[in-house]
Design a protein around this nucleic acid. Structure first.
Length: 404
RNA sequence: GGGGAGAUGCCGGAGUGGUCAAACGGACCAGACUGUAAAUCUGGCGCCUUCGGGCUGCGUAGGUUCGAUCCCUACUCUCCCCA
């Protein structure tokens, strides 16, 4: 592929490319010398669960991989012990080594659902950072000034808001940047929240007399609430490991304005089609509900296969359009042959506590065998399985144990 | 090293001796409505309850008081100013 064509793949849908001339030059040389570029991507294994937001950079890596370049997937096991302050308002909890090792493993399994394992090199930054001598550390620290670090948005905001920042966190960008020196990376990819860290890498490479890496940033995908970035802790994430049903439902819950964006960043839809979609939604020619279902189907197919996607869609329609029962309902066996409804809900976990159960019943959220039950003290006989529904999407089938 | 301010529920943030299980906003849950688990409106949102109440709770540990989130002491942590 020509330099221009490759450049287009690299830069399509990226927010920043710093800078394009450097990249062009690197690509030209790579082509001439038949030497793939080293593309660095760092992951912080603080949480082992990947969600759709993570797939935005991963998909880009995959595309770059297809061009024949070398992906270096860096697991920041050393830096995870510090906690990346990016986008963080508060100091992150630090993780222990064993936990990080465990996370890193499950993390990789998920990553290779998108990346080609054979063409990806996995490295751990503890490999070199663990061996950094105090002396090396000091010289690294001497490369950057407090003002330079503090100018970074996350820090300055926290500083202004009088929130604590630890010295350890100050070091984070330097260590991440040093990884680039160690790897002699040609390109580093990350979310826009990583921009500062990525640029530090550029600078440090220069100080080590290396050619600075090209920085590519991708947007941070909004979660199902349509406002904040997708994140498990914010509860607005759709996980790669989510069941087809949940994934489908989660996608159906995104606000309409996100439909085109999700198509763009999460699926292989080409530019022409994207434009048509955007235009169609804007003008009202296309029905958002329909497009959203198409999006959901498309993504569930990608991660679970077309069969599962069709099933999830049918299930969604059945449960939410016609108010029918879902496919799979959790079954419970309890020792008692009869129980009052409040205790029952709390016992099988449909309600968090008895008080919560009582409130839900009074609010008309609870059905027993498809009949609304508004009496908290109602006694449910469990001589045969009872279908309990609590709210729109929590169901359980409960029966008493006949003999033991 | 010296001086000052502060720590409240999932988060932000009021309260400054009883009327505080703690205003208000967000998140969350439920109901109505709908094209969805969207938007909007309504209700709920510590635990237990025979629905009368009972218990735990406002950084940690003690103390004062009939009574403390609110006062005192020590401790831990954070922020600011000066050095």
């Amino acid at each position: 592929m020509t330099v221009d064509e490759q450049l287009r793949v690299f830069c399509r849908d990226t927010v920043d490319c710093i800078d394009e001339a450097d990249l062009e030059q690197k690509l030209a040389r790579s082509l001439k010398e038949k030497k793939p570029l080293k593309i660095k991507y760092g992951a912080d294994p603080s949480s082992p669960h990947l969600h759709l937001g993570h797939t935005v950079p991963l998909r880009k890596l995959r595309a770059i991989q297809e061009l024949g370049h070398q992906i270096i997937f860096l697991i920041g096991d050393f830096t995870a012990r510090i906690g990346d302050p990016s986008q963080q308002y508060q100091t992150r909890p630090k993780l222990g080594r064993s936990e990080i090792a465990k996370n890193a493993k499950t993390y990789q399994e998920q990553v290779f659902r998108i990346l080609d394992r054979k063409r990806t090199k996995v490295v751990y930054n503890s490999a070199w950072l663990d061996n950094l001598k105090p002396d090396d550390f000091l010289s690294l620290m001497s490369q950057y000034t407090v003002a330079r670090i503090l100018e970074r948005d996350d820090f300055s905001r926290r500083y202004k808001d009088k929130k604590p920042i630890t010295l350890l966190e100050f070091m984070y960008p330097l260590l991440q940047g040093y990884d680039s020196v160690e790897l002699k990376s040609d390109v580093e990819l990350g979310g826009t929240d990583q921009k500062f860290n990525l640029l530090v890498g550029r600078e440090l490479q220069r100080l080590w007399n290396q050619e600075p890496q090209v920085v590519l940033t991708l947007p941070i995908l909004e979660g199902t609430d349509g406002e904040r970035k997708m994140s498990k802790s914010l509860g607005n994430a759709i996980g790669l490991e989510d069941t087809p049903t949940n994934m489908f439902g989660g996608l159906m819950s995104i606000p309409d304005k996100l439909i085109a964006r999700y198509f763009r960043y999460l699926t292989d839809t080409d530019e022409k089609e994207l434009k048509a979609l955007e235009g169609g939604l804007e003008s009202g020619k296309l029905h958002p509900r329909k497009e959203k279902a198409r999006l959901a189907n498309c993504l569930v197919s990608m991660y679970h296969g077309a069969g599962e996607a069709a099933r999830a869609e049918a299930e969604f329609d059945r449960v939410f359009k016609s108010g029918d029962l879902p496919d799979e309902i959790q079954e419970y066996r309890v020792k008692e042959m009869k129980m009052d409804l409040v205790s029952l809900l709390a016992k099988v976990g449909l309600a968090e506590s008895k008080g919560a159960a009582r409130r839900l019943i009074q609010q008309g959220a609870v059905e027993v065998d498809r009949r609304l039950e508004k009496e908290p003290t109602a006694v449910i006989l469990l001589n045969e399985p009872r279908l309990i529904r609590c709210g729109k999407r929590k169901f359980a089938r409960v029966s008493g144990v006949t003999h033991d």
